[in-house]
Amino acid sequence: MIDILLSEQLLAAAIITGTLYALVALGLNLVYGTMRLLNIAHGELVMLGAYVASSGYNYFGISPLVGVIGAGVLTGLMGAAVYIFLFRNLLVKPELSRRLEANSLLIFFGAIVILQNIVALAFTGTPRGYRYLDGVIHFGGVALTENRLAGFLIAAAICLATAIFLRASIVGVAIKALIQDRRAAGLVGINVDRIQLLSLTLGFSIGGVAGALVSMTQEITPFMGFPYTMAAFVVIILGGLGNLVGGIAAGLVLGFIQIYGVALTSPQWNSILLYGAFVAVLVLRPQGIMRGGRGVR
């Protein structure tokens, strides 16, 4: 048992899984941080990205590494469309915007069901996978398939690039400002509307990219989204809501918890660990992140 726990193989798996979680959470955090939206449909973006990459490969022979771009573009456009058609237009009418804010979760739940079933209708519910880059590489004591390595490298690169972008570019700083205080950001001249559009587009896009990467290493179904949504929420709450860099660290933590947890118990505990972490994090999170008081109507 101890050998397993101390093995580099497990460590590598934890880091890789954690990085993927960090990436998924990054997308959600961008959306939540700038628009205070708990997008419970985030996992469906991952699912859509996965299907784009998988279809690209299965029907057109396009490499998933290129499919990643397609996935990102599709989901990014969805984000932009949601912002432009839903938020920009509806928010003009105060009555609708009040309902939206209070019921956004239910609306997202509806979106989840719609998306899942559209994909199920188009592709059937059978799991599908494909083989790409599945040669095995060895680093020291670790054996990795090329596709997992590629996925990891791309995910890590995006996380790193985002972290640098937030710190070093003016747009990135503007995003951080918006996350911290929306009203103040507007007052200092930040174009809130454009930054929100960018954040929603980027956030959704990252979700799709993550999905494309995932499709290389596991079977996909129309209903694969929930666990990613759960993981994303655990990560963003652990890392601090709106704290994009903290989320990256928290993603790794969750990866470790899950991989080592399963190693200590059994694969059947996989979901229990994930959903258990979700419940625990919500119940134990420090009060004061969210003003209590009104129930959602």
Partner: peptide, 21 residues
């Protein structure tokens, strides 16, 4: 003790957790 939208998603998480248990 969890309020607002967090309660809402928590109920979902609980249902799934109990399912897997």
């Amino acid at each position: 003790r969890v309020r607002g939208p967090y309660f809402v998603i928590l109920t979902f998480g609980i249902a799934e957790l109990v399912k897997y248990v």
